[in-house]
């Protein structure tokens, strides 16, 4: 069961990181438009459309212990990001970023402008308005985004394969373990991993639908 636990651990850590990074980015993107923001948003969205191998390839190059950046990370932070769990976390954070940012950004943008104006007029700062008015009113979207990020990270395969490899207990997550088991004709292991992954993901998706049953739109729009 080690690969399943590793997948869950990776998904939880990635989701927590992305909550802290994604919410401020989403808020910033939902404010006034600019060319610069458009470009940043395009970069954030790229993992949605690119094959994971592209991202994995560039991360592999960037973090390679043979490259300047990789050497620098290793020397100053003792960080070895290729073929390590830490590297998987970083890759997952980049790879799942659009799943966290897009729904939250849309939710911020849908709040009427007068809502924050009403708070400013009452003498409240932008930060106070953010925490007392804006964020509480998009809670369902934040929750949906977190759950989708979790599920998406759980199902990650290509990026992990590229930069994580297949080290038991370190980078051998469930999706890789399935692939590995099929390669070695161990269909019963593959089946048990696949079934568990299927069950977990199914429950998560059902949960999202139940929580959003009052919403007009599907949470995946």
């Amino acid at each position: 069961m080690e690969p399943i636990w590793l997948s869950i651990k990776l998904a939880i850590i990635t989701t927590i990181f992305l909550l802290f990074i994604g919410i401020p980015i989403a808020y910033w993107l939902s404010r006034k438009q600019s060319i610069f923001k458009l470009i940043i948003e395009a970069f954030i969205t790229m993992p949605l459309v690119l094959p994971p191998s592209v991202l994995g390839f560039y991360l592999l190059l960037a973090f390679s212990p043979n490259n300047a950046f990789g050497i620098w990370l290793h020397r100053h932070f003792d960080l070895q990001l290729v073929f390590s769990f830490k590297g998987l976390i970083l890759a997952s954070v980049i790879y799942s970023l659009p799943f966290m940012v897009s729904p939250i950004k849309a939710a911020f943008a849908h709040l009427p402008g007068s809502m924050s104006e009403a708070s400013y007029v009452m003498g409240k700062s932008k930060i106070q308005t953010f925490f007392y008015v804006l964020l509480p009113n998009i809670k369902p979207s934040v929750f949906t985004a977190a759950v989708l990020t979790f599920a998406h990270t759980l199902g990650e395969f290509g990026v992990v394969l590229m930069i994580g490899g297949n080290i038991p207990g370190e980078t051998k997550v469930a999706s890789i373990a399935i692939y590995d088991a099929v390669e070695t004709m161990d269909y019963s292991s593959a089946n048990s991993y696949a079934l568990i992954l299927f069950a977990i993901t199914f429950v998560i998706v059902i949960g999202v639908f139940v929580l959003n049953r009052n919403a007009v739109k599907s949470p995946f729009e």
């Binding site: 009427p112 007068s114 104006e117 009403a118 008015v133 509480p136 009113n137």
Partner: peptide
Amino acid sequence: FQDYALFPN
């Protein structure tokens, strides 16, 4: 405000 701009939370 014309649209009241109340805080739903």
